[in-house]
Design a protein around this nucleic acid. Structure first.
Lengths: 145, 145, 145, 145
DNA sequence: TTTT
DNA sequence: TTTT
């Protein structure tokens, strides 16, 4: 049995990515991302912000650590994953995260940065084929959870 | 400030929708949805299932209560929302839900049911206009949380 | 029978929207949108730009005519539609368009404009309800093609 | 400059995939896909069908040729690409296609086929790197089915 | 040219 | 708790 589990977000980083190196050299980056929507209620303009826990693995995490910072606007594509963990009091808790599969930097901070959005990364490794293709390798399975 | 917060899922209902009628006549339906993916690890076929908390409001909830049942395959489009609540021990907890904006029934259970997918609903109130249009009403703001 | 027909684009307008008013007061706006991707080929950085024909109807077209201009970066969600027409030599031709359902302005042009993306519109007619809701009216059926 | 160019479709194949082998051993499969939507106009139920030109490359094409047939229901994710060609009369024409990046078989035709959707393929090939990254190589081929 |  |  199979299905589809896809998330598409455009929002701003609430903090710089937090980068960790696991045993075996695996890199993980994580950060909060805010997506807001505005609507009218009782004639007033209301803004509602939603916070998402973003997680990036390996090559994607490495690139994120270089290019993503607090406040930046990004397009992120990924999938939902809910995992459980024990807090300090040994209470079992659940957290839902978006495991990013690729992202694109959008917007600019100053006139000295590019006006255009720049695709920063996909969870892939580029490999030149004789003719045209760009290689991509899926990664899973050996994730430490 | 605004952004994009979109979720696309295809999966099976883990239970029949649970329907509640709030004060003011608002209907809410909720159910768990499973999306699975299979991949190879160490030469073995592994299946990983992810469970999602789906919530539907008003007209969409009404239609869901009629057409969706445990085991059915659906396409769901919606947005992520994390809300907090207090459990029985007054401990603050968080849960992430997918607030559905529209869905489409896919697949069939027997030959007596339609073979093809049938779009069941969008988060709208149907309203026939003099000419052609189908009304849709957004709903937010007065949600009980 | 039903299905899913969804397009998600982030790109720049190639021209200002061209706005037309049809008989019956219906407004239509259209413009080309460029989405680019870069990849490596033979060790060189190659950029490939794809051009999309965007069409917006009614309220969405009105808002587009106010807020969208050549060069702006937008997120657009819509559906594919291929239609035929006769060119000047009476030759039947086909064109595929993206009929937008909503869009969000991204990026900024100067420091005096908002840093954050601003959701400009959804294909709706705004209507204030006594309580909270924002009306949305689907539009189809009477389109002149 | 970069952007986002994403298409998500659920529909039925109008024909069996047409498979070609290009010079260099590259496989290409293509087929028409129908997505339909139904709506009410003047109190009548109207169905509007949209036809999409789907193209699959390499490993994805190989798998498509085995698993996809006329009438089957599939979920397809890909990107838009418009290309020009000359018809028999040397007239330049344009066609817009969806270059598929992955697909999932949905539904069933008879009770002897699986009731549930089966993910058939993604455009990747697994390859272990010395350091950390899991490469992603376009298009599959070595998948165990 | 699919499908209900 | 779904499904193959």
């Amino acid at each position: 049995m199979s299905g589809v589990n896809k998330v598409i977000l455009v929002g701003h980083l609430g903090k710089d990515p937090e980068v960790r190196h696991l045993d075996g050299g695996v890199t993980v980056a994580s950060f909060p991302l805010a997506t807001s929507e505005t609507y009218s209620k009782d004639g007033k303009r209301v803004e509602q912000t939603e916070w998402h826990n973003i997680v990036m693995w390996r090559g994607l995490a490495e690139i994120a650590s270089k290019y993503l910072q607090k406040g930046k606007l990004v397009y992120i594509e990924g999938k939902l994953r809910t995992r459980s963990f024990e807090d300090k009091e040994k209470v079992k808790k659940y957290v839902t995260e978006i495991v990013a599969e690729n992202f694109t930097l959008l917007g600019r901070k100053t006139d000295f940065e590019p006006t255009q959005p720049v695709i920063i990364a996909q969870n892939t490794e580029t490999k030149i084929d004789d003719d045209f293709s760009i290689g991509a390798k899926d990664e899973r399975g050996d994730l430490p959870f």
